[in-house]
């Protein structure tokens, strides 16, 4: 059980049970769909971007605990960031869950460190990154459905 507690930390369980910013917040002016064909998880990310600032982010859809918690945490952290900061956050998160090195993210992104456990579960990395890839597509204003597999 101890290994599993690393993966399913209380914060993750909490965000998966009660996802923040769940449901389409209006107004929004960016939107992208994400799909993990391996497991059938699907999210839509809605964002309001004005003057280069991500003023609001919300999501709906369905997924596992990891993908839902990751989406929920992401929406909290993205709000108020500049587009540039949001993109940098995507890169940092991606590195956190995929890189070999075992370095936690700094204080500003500390909340995301609970997801570092997925590194030990290669099949689950796609769950953790689904919302993030979708958010990036929303920022890029890409209409196609994002696919992680």
């Amino acid at each position: 059980m101890s290994d599993l507690r690393d993966l399913y930390q209380e914060v993750i369980l909490d965000h998966s049970r009660s996802p923040r910013n769940f449901g389409h917040h209006e107004p929004s002016n960016r939107e992208a769909k994400g799909n993990n064909p391996l497991c059938g998880d699907k999210f839509t990310i809605y964002a309001l971007v004005e003057d280069g600032i991500v003023k609001d982010v919300s999501f709906d859809g369905r997924g596992c605990a990891i993908s839902t918690a990751s989406a929920s945490l992401m929406t909290e952290l993205m709000k108020g960031k500049t587009e540039e900061e949001a993109r940098a956050m995507f890169e940092s998160f991606h590195e956190l869950v995929t890189a070999d090195k075992d370095e936690p993210l700094d204080e500003a992104l500390d909340k995301l460190n609970v997801l570092a456990g997925v590194r030990g579960y290669p099949m689950r990395v796609k769950c953790a990154t689904l919302a993030w890839h979708t958010m990036k597509a929303a920022l890029d204003d890409i209409d196609d459905t994002v696919v992680t597999e």
């Binding site: 599993l4 399913y8 497991c39 596992c64 579960y121 099949m123 769950c127």
Partner: peptide
């Protein structure tokens, strides 16, 4: 979710 079940 089935994926979480599978991992556990």
């Amino acid at each position: 979710h089935p994926h979480d079940v599978g991992t556990i």
